[in-house]
Amino acid sequence: MSSDLLKKKNAFVELVGLPDLAISTEATYVRHRSVSDIFSIYKDDGTLREYFPSTYAISHSHTMNLHSTNLHAIKKNNEK
């Protein structure tokens, strides 16, 4: 990826502020998986299984507030 393109992409992401790629847009929890909780898949019915084909490849995000309160993780990030 050229640095020019990278700058462009970063400028776009900064403007919009939403994570994840527009590769698959068939479901909101696939398009914006990082900001969706894992319950969103089952919000309509607990027995409902994932029925979008892209969820075969793309996993949900596991984000459930466990990491944010983790001082260590941030420390690690800063050391890098």
Partner: peptide, 17 residues
């Protein structure tokens, strides 16, 4: 529900795992 940049990083890491 609060999502920090660290959460996003982890989330990106395990997108396919």
């Amino acid at each position: 529900r609060i999502i920090s940049s660290e959460d996003l990083k982890v989330s990106y890491q395990n997108i396919f795992d």
